[in-house]
Write a protein that binds this DNA or RNA. Sequence first.
DNA 1: GGAATGACCATGG
DNA 2: ACCATGGCCATTC
Length: 107
Amino acid sequence: MPPGFEQAVLALIGDIPPGCVCTYGTLAAMAGYPRHARHVGKLLSGLPEGCGAPWHRVLGAGGRVSRPGSHHADLQKLLLENEGVALSDNGRVSLKRYGWPTEYFFK
DNA sequence: GGAATGACCATGG
DNA sequence: ACCATGGCCATTC
């Protein structure tokens, strides 16, 4: 991986406005590395909790929360709720409302 | 070099 | 709408 990937992704995450969410794939693509959704996940998994980065605004495709049942899933729900993002019972988010950038941006 | 792994994704039944 | 499959790609044995 070229250096800067990490930076690019983190920067993008930092640019996500509060109360909004983005997806791994979209994030990777915007960072300039399409098809690298997994690596974004890898990166976030290694991120400490109090790193200041709003990792909780990052979701899987379709606004689904990854690794259900784990500690981070619950925490993520809380943090999002705390920012005013409504979560479905299963832990789903409506990208149509909270998605960033807007889904139609690319289409 | 090859196999296994991962906070993933799109598709088809 | 849910699950199984196959495809991705860098990292780590």
